[in-house]
């Protein structure tokens, strides 16, 4: 069991949880993820790592309630425990293996969309701690859905905020913000984009046009997360790759996003049914049309 040390509501339906997981905390690096199971009947779901502290033995995850499993995780309070918390999984971001002098020559732009902002943070923080400055764009629907702005401000060279409705920062999508920066003369060698698949797809199209090398972090479906099941296969540069062991980060210009988005919906029917049953149960309602069967 892995005790939740701290829980915070970051935005509507988005929570951060600091979890006691000393082994994971010691081994974690930017770019990696964990597999979490809420309880003994829970699903194994992959979640990105938002922060880690080896000394404290803690790992922070940021979770948005989307289905039965994420809702179950978010319903747990500090002091309670997750049944399983396995990781860190996936390959760390490429830059952690490169010499710092090399990195200092690169101009990085990070783009975090919605809950995808959280896994951007440890990457920018790592670079900051190694003396490498990086610009960051955070995007959200509106000001109230923005997360990690203060944390990011502390580690980013320059922080740009974009909201769909203009309630904070730039009015428009992160891609428009990026193009605006480019038009104003900002030059970047490397872009890292993490967020909804559709955002990553359009960031990749934009950076291709701008000639910026781009890394994306894919949130594919997974069961074990260790290479055993192959549920997370994704086509990159025409080849099938396993997100869990060969990713989660891939060259954004080579990913087949349309296939990846389609594959994310593989269990949607079952998930919607499960959500309907859970809602019925929560309401104490006895199902008469057989949804629970």
């Amino acid at each position: 069991m892995f005790t939740i040390l701290e829980k915070r509501l970051l935005a509507e339906n988005i929570y951060s949880m600091k979890v006691a997981a000393p082994r994971v905390a010691r081994a974690a690096l930017p770019g990696q993820f964990v597999i979490v199971r809420a309880d003994a009947v829970g699903e194994r779901i992959p979640l990105t790592i938002a922060d880690y502290d080896a000394r404290e033995g803690s790992v922070t995850i940021v979770v948005q309630t989307l289905g039965v499993s994420t809702r179950k995780i978010c319903a747990l309070e500090a002091g309670e425990a997750l049944a399983d918390f396995a990781g860190p999984l996936g390959r760390p971001s490429e830059f952690v293996h490169l010499p710092v002098e090399e990195l200092q020559k690169r101009r990085f732009i990070f783009i975090g969309g919605g809950v995808g902002t959280a896994p951007v943070y440890p990457q920018v923080k790592w670079l900051h701690e190694h003396g490498v400055g990086a610009d960051v764009i955070i995007g959200a629907k509106n000001a109230s859905m923005l997360i990690y702005t203060e944390e990011m401000r502390a580690v980013a060279a320059r922080l740009y905020i974009a909201t769909d409705d203009g309630s904070a920062g730039f009015k428009g999508l992160v891609t428009a913000q990026l193009e605006a920066l480019a038009a104003a003369g900002s030059r970047y060698d490397e872009c890292v984009a993490i967020g909804p698949m559709i955002m990553m797809k359009f960031v990749a199209l934009t950076t291709k046009k701008l000639g910026i090398r781009t890394t994306v972090s894919l949130n594919a479906l997974m069961v074990d997360g260790t290479g055993m099941c192959g549920a997370c296969r994704v086509t990159v540069a025409g080849r099938t790759r396993f997100t869990c062991v060969e990713g989660p980060e891939f060259d954004g210009h080579e990913v087949d996003f349309d296939e990846a988005m389609r594959r994310q919906g593989m269990y949607r029917t079952q998930e919607q049914r499960a959500a309907a049953i859970a809602a019925e149960r929560a309401a104490g309602h006895q199902c008469k049309i057989g949804l629970d069967r």
């Binding site: 699903e43 039965v68 069961v223 269990y267 499960a274």
Partner: peptide, 14 residues
């Protein structure tokens, strides 16, 4: 492993 065939468990199967 995930008992997806059992309604009491959360993992889906198709």
């Amino acid at each position: 492993l995930m008992h997806a065939c059992d309604e009491a468990y959360d993992t889906p199967i198709r």
